[in-house]
Simulated assay, not measured.
Amino acid sequence: MQERARSVRERYAEVEAASYGRSWTSEEIMLGFLGDVGDLAKLVQGKAGVRPREDLDEALAHELADCLWSVMTLADAYDVDLAGAFTGTMDELDRVLSGD
């Protein structure tokens, strides 16, 4: 998944450079992620019946994937081993939840 996210990011960077004369910074990618999280929040409200729409399940899946892509892209930008960090964090949470 990380390789695919990286490939898509590289293609976006090319489009951005052609359109804006430069690719987005990590800060701009983070701002885009915040927008995606806001969209995700609205879809979660939809699942709770507050903001219903016909394509809710598809839109929710799409937005979750968008958010995951942003996290993976930011991890790549900052040289974070996301798989390792996830494993370590889950191990830590397991210890806390086990009372160790």
Rank of each mutant, 00 (worst) to 15 (best):
M30C: 15
D66A: 01
R11S: 09
A83W: 07
M1A: 15
L74F: 05
D55Y: 04
C67H: 03
D39M: 10
G38F: 05
S7R: 14
D79N: 13
E10Y: 03
A48P: 00
A61I: 08
W24Y: 15
A13N: 03
S70G: 12
D39A: 15
A77V: 07
Y12T: 07
Q2N: 13
D91S: 06
E54H: 10
L56Y: 02
L60S: 01
T73M: 08
S70F: 14
D66R: 00
M90T: 13
M30D: 12
R9F: 08
Y12C: 11
L97Q: 11
W69Q: 09
V71N: 01
L82A: 13
D79M: 05
R4T: 14
R53K: 15
R53Q: 15
A65D: 07
G49Y: 01
L34V: 14
G32Q: 02
A65S: 10
E14S: 09
S23G: 07
G32R: 04
T73V: 15
L64V: 08
L68T: 14
D81M: 00
G21Q: 00
G99F: 01
A48C: 08
W69G: 03
R4N: 10
V37K: 04
S98R: 14
D81I: 06
L93Q: 03
G32S: 11
D79A: 13
A41W: 04
H62I: 11
G88S: 05
A75M: 06
L40F: 03
G38L: 08
E16L: 05
C67K: 02
D100N: 10
S23Q: 14
L74P: 13
D66K: 01
M30K: 12
Q2T: 12
G84K: 04
L31P: 07
L40N: 03
